[in-house]
Design a protein around this nucleic acid. Structure first.
Length: 152
DNA sequence: GCCAACGTTGGC
DNA sequence: GCCAACGTTGGC
């Protein structure tokens, strides 16, 4: 069982959006970075847990928890010319991007904010907090997961 | 394969 | 809106 952190801009898709979806489950589409895709394609398994992180917003931080609810499959938006995630170089035979379904597990009463995360000495090596990390899919160790769960 | 120019991310 | 730090693109 692995732990992850998935980033999303709440203006586009927030944990509140996820809570209103049918079965509180949604496809996590639009990942268009190779390293993030590789984590998603090669790393995520049904039952894995993820922190739902809100970025590029007034209060950046971890808003709650979701569960990986499918195996990875081709992201349909890459084939849709109407989508902002359309990739003309992707074909049905050779898809380039993948997605997984995620299911809501818990919304934190209060966001565990980025400054709080930075202030926790146990999280010094958390990949999210390293200089230059911009990945939207980031692995989280069991120890880091536990430390963050204690902060909510 | 190199690298300059450009685009994106994301905190502030 | 600014800017640092990446990633991508494309000419050569």
């Amino acid at each position: 069982m692995n732990y992850w952190l998935f980033k999303s801009e709440p203006d586009v898709f927030s944990i509140e959006h996820l809570s209103k979806m049918k079965k509180q489950t949604s496809m996590w589409d639009g990942v268009r970075n190779y390293q993030a895709r590789n984590y998603m394609r090669d790393g995520t398994k049904p039952g894995d847990l993820l922190f739902f992180y809100h970025s590029s917003c007034p209060q950046p931080g971890i808003a709650g928890i979701a569960e990986i609810a499918s195996t990875p499959y081709p992201d349909p938006t890459q084939f849709n010319p109407e989508s902002e995630y359309y990739d003309p170089k992707a074909t049905a035979d050779v898809p380039r991007w993948v997605t997984v379904d995620v299911k809501l597990k818990e919304i934190f009463n209060e966001i565990v904010s980025l400054p709080e995360l930075r202030a926790n000495p146990k999280l010094e090596e958390l990949a999210l907090l390293q200089r230059g990390t911009r990945l939207s899919i980031i692995p989280v160790s069991a120890a880091h997961w536990k430390a963050i769960m204690a902060m909510r």
